[in-house]
């Protein structure tokens, strides 16, 4: 039990915290729940605008899904390297952990690069935030807003993971950074989870 948790136990013995081993984990979960409301609101707004629009373009025809399907696969792979990083840290292998954290960050960086490529391509074809050649102007607005908000999360995640590589290296023993890496993993998997939703609702549906 961590120092904070044991202190808490001394004050309020009757309460059992939601995440007994780490307050940081609870903090991240609450942040993610709030962030999920942000994404949920964006997607709900998107759904309502699209359902009530007469000339909403069919995303599948306009956006294409080959590249984004590959991007989806890439994020799933980066989630696997993330869980493997934590698994190796639990076994005490910091070098492997850092390599896997780097691969996860690299996956995120490639994802954002592909998104930049996709955006450039679509902008050249006429998709703008305030209009497009295919129909409802809100199509472009919602597309750039939602994918951009997600892309910012991935960018933030890459920086977060690179910082975690440093944390793993600097803390004296592998166990000292286990909690911190697990918490960063929660954030990374959340970004993957949100992309699963965005891919389905904004590209496939």
């Amino acid at each position: 039990m961590s120092h904070v948790a044991s202190m808490h136990g001394a004050v309020e013995p009757a309460e059992s915290p939601l995440t007994p081993e780490s307050w940081g984990k609870l903090g991240m979960w609450i942040f993610l729940a709030g962030d999920a409301v942000g994404f949920g609101t964006l997607l709900a707004g998107y759904g309502a605008m699209r359902a009530t629009s007469a000339d909403w373009p069919r995303p599948f025809d306009v956006l294409g899904i080959n590249l984004t399907a590959a991007m989806t696969f890439l994020l799933i792979c980066s989630s696997v390297t993330m869980v493997k990083a934590l698994e190796w840290l639990g076994k005490g292998d910091r070098t492997r952990t850092r390599v896997l954290l780097f691969m996860t960050a690299l996956g995120g960086a490639i994802f954002v690069s592909l998104q930049a490529y996709e955006w450039t391509h679509l902008i050249h074809r006429g998709l703008h935030i305030n209009g497009n050649p295919w129909g409802a102007s809100l199509f472009g607005t919602s597309f750039f807003l939602v994918t951009g908000f997600h892309g910012l999360h991935v960018t933030g995640g890459v920086i977060y993971l690179l910082a975690m590589m440093r944390v793993v290296k600097r803390r004296p023993v592998p166990a000292a950074s286990y909690n911190a890496v697990e918490i960063s993993g929660l954030y990374w998997h959340f970004v993957d989870l949100v992309w699963i939703m965005v891919f389905t609702f904004m590209y496939l549906l």
């Binding site: 999920a36 709900a44 707004g45 309502a48």
Partner: peptide, 20 residues
């Protein structure tokens, strides 16, 4: 805690649709 945002977003769709 994790499921709440999903419930809120789903409710929001049904709140917005009649207006739309």
């Amino acid at each position: 805690v994790a499921v709440t945002p999903l419930v809120i977003a789903t409710l929001l769709v049904f709140l917005l649709l009649p207006d739309g």
